[in-house]
Design a protein around this nucleic acid. Structure first.
Length: 537
DNA sequence: TGGCAATACTG
DNA sequence: CAGTAT
DNA sequence: GCCA
């Protein structure tokens, strides 16, 4: 039986859900019960807490209209309420958009004289409208669309791609990258977080509390380098929570009830907001051992344990390692091409290599589908490496492909050195995903780049595509969402969470749900569709 | 106090 | 089997 | 680190 998590009944709240941290009070007056049901579920599912009365903890009150509002709650009580009073439409629109939309259009005046209309600052309204996912304004007063309707229209507009053809392969998916490329181009500012329409909302979250998240971010890397992934992950989750706060934290009290923030992190936050720094981090950053181990750990093939071993042997610089005879092959490569591998690849070069790779692949097996995933597919201006996802529409020609492909690519000197080469689907009956990790070069150059190939059987291709396109945050959300609905999601499929009984990854017998395209997976999970370039969460 | 994803390759 | 990587 |  299932170990512990996932109970189907109350979907476990996603601590990173878009409504995380919200404490809401719902005015049920004049709300269709069916709809209310959905809202409650969504709210809890995405991290909000629902209060049964207008307590002090409540941060948001929702009502159908001001009439419903004043009918149901005492005016004075309301007047004392300091939180936000919004129309349910805000929920609808946020759910449709996949993130919290600006509240400005949905604010209900608490003042009894006020009307049923939300605040209308022309400037704000215009701005919001532009950035709204579906250009149409979502006005209040009249709630026309049910959640389903919204969802439908929303997808209709983008979903066309899926309706495609070609052997029913999710194909078009392979096309999306190119559409990204030729589409509204990504500002070549860094490669941070640009180009996502959603991130350009006028009142987007950014930066308040940046001081805190930056420091936590450094701790994430430090703990990871030291091998304490669990602790590292805690900081990771905390960042997600803090980033969503709509206000600047000024005292630890403001975060004491947030999920993922316990005693220790509260103290850290307290220190950061009062002193502007964290002594713990300062300590780490000046500690030679920590710095050395972090550096060594950046070498491909060297993890926390090996880094520590080298440190204890007295090594302090990368040059010291080169003469160490205990280096493994891949570590030698990682060291030799340390700078190369860290050098980011301009988007246009990735694009050229993708076409080249497609051409070569087609030459080996006609019809094979080759897509460059990762940050490239998400539209970034530069990429740290190449993630190549491969499949074949006929469901079988992918077998044995990777071997020949790698051989050919080596002959043409595109692939240079191997790091890992596993292939089990070679002739096997199977489901296995062939994998290759290595170093490659752009035609005519010597600069090494990391490149990964993943060959998926056509029937689980969509899962591989999603997983390898990322980003990490999205993958985690999808996985949690799947979990909350009684499934387990990974890059090889979506499985009913019948745990103990043998739903090991890809295990024969347990087959993944048949979802042929990325969109079908998003839909199935009830996650708002995101174009590839919108997945930089 | 134990779990926090799970799995495949290298040496 | 430990360590590493995705 | 947090949480059940």
């Amino acid at each position: 039986m299932a170990p512990k998590r996932t109970k189907n009944k109350a979907p476990s709240a996603d601590p990173q859900g878009m409504f995380a941290g919200m404490v809401v009070f719902l005015i049920e007056n004049s709300v269709q019960s069916r709809r209310l049901q959905i809202w409650k579920q969504k709210l809890e599912q995405m991290g909000a807490k629902i209060e049964t009365h207008l307590s002090k903890k409540v941060s948001h009150v929702f009502a159908m209209s001001s009439d419903a509002l004043f009918h149901h709650v005492d005016k004075d009580q309301l007047a004392r309420f300091k939180g936000h009073v919004l129309l349910y439409q805000w929920l609808e629109d946020s759910l449709a958009a996949g993130e919290k939309v600006s509240e400005h259009l949905y604010i209900l005046k608490v003042d009894p004289e006020g009307e049923d209309v939300p605040d209308k600052n022309p400037k704000l309204e215009a701005a919001n409208r532009n950035s709204s996912i579906h250009g149409e304004q979502s006005h209040c007063k009249r709630i026309k669309s049910s959640p389903e309707e919204i969802k439908h229209t929303n997808e209709e507009s983008k979903g066309d791609i899926e309706t495609n053809t070609a052997s029913g392969l999710s194909n078009n998916e392979p096309n999306s990258p190119s559409s990204v490329t030729s589409g509204p181009e990504i500002p070549s500012t860094l490669d941070k977080d640009v180009g996502t329409p959603t991130s350009s909302l006028p009142y987007s979250p950014p930066d308040l509390n940046k001081d805190i998240t930056e420091i936590f971010g450094k701790l994430i890397n430090i703990y990871r380098a030291l091998g304490d992934d669990r602790r590292s992950f805690s900081y990771y989750k905390a960042i997600a929570v803090v980033e969503k706060l709509p206000f600047k934290i000024e005292s630890a009290d403001q975060v004491k009830n947030l999920p993922g923030i316990g005693k220790s992190l509260q103290d850290h936050i307290q220190e950061i907001v009062t002193t502007g720094k964290l002594s713990k981090l300062e300590h780490f950053e000046t500690d030679e051992k920590v710095r050395t181990i972090s550096l060594f750990g950046e070498v491909w093939g060297i993890g926390p344990a090996t880094a520590l071993k080298f440190y204890e042997k007295g090594h302090r610089a990368l040059d010291d390692l080169k003469s160490d005879n205990s280096l493994t092959n891949v570590q030698k490569l990682g060291l030799k091409y340390f700078d190369d591998i860290k050098t980011r690849i301009p988007r246009n070069e990735v694009q050229e290599m993708e076409s080249l790779l497609q051409k070569v692949a087609e030459d080996i097996v006609s019809g094979v589908v080759v897509v460059c995933g990762g940050s490239y597919r998400r539209g970034k201006a530069s990429c740290g490496d190449l993630d190549i996802i491969i499949t074949h529409p006929d469901g079988k020609s992918h077998k044995g492909f990777l071997q020949k492909y790698v051989k050919r690519l080596k002959e043409m000197k595109l692939l240079r050195e191997d790091l890992i080469f596993s292939t089990h689907s070679e002739e096997g009956t199977d489901q296995g995903v062939d994998t290759y990790f290595g170093l490659c070069t752009y035609p005519g150059r010597e600069l090494r780049h990391r490149i990964d190939f993943k060959v998926y059987p056509r029937d689980i291709y969509a899962f591989g595509l999603i997983a390898w396109t990322g980003n990490d945050v999205l993958n985690r959300r999808l996985r949690l969402l799947a979990e909350s609905k009684g499934y387990r999601l990974d890059d090889t499929g979506l499985f009913p969470a019948t745990h103990g009984s043998g739903s090991k990854r890809g295990a024969r017998g347990t087959t993944s749900l048949k979802l042929e395209t990325e969109k079908e997976v998003f839909d199935f999970l009830g996650f708002p569709w995101l174009e590839t370039y919108e997945r930089n969460l």
